[in-house]
Amino acid sequence: MKTLKDMKEGEKTHVVKINGDGALRRRMMDMGLIDGTAVTVRRFAPLGDPIELSVRGFELSLRKADAELVEVK
């Protein structure tokens, strides 16, 4: 099972599933991370965390711990 956290800079993929529950999961989905969404990992912050993603034409930032909840292809 691969998650967003395991991706490299510049890699493109599609979301398979969002794990977790409550506010965090809902927030990620509200921001457009749902089944089949195309995601590109833009870069990691200078201290290695958080991650910057490109989703649906805008830039989204997630912590690695949360990115682990996003299963990707």
Binding site: F58, E59, L60, S61
Partner: peptide, 12 residues
């Protein structure tokens, strides 16, 4: 409180 998740937009 409810921890507010760090899922933020980096606006253009």
């Amino acid at each position: 409180g409810d921890p507010s998740p760090f899922v933020i937009e980096l606006p253009a």
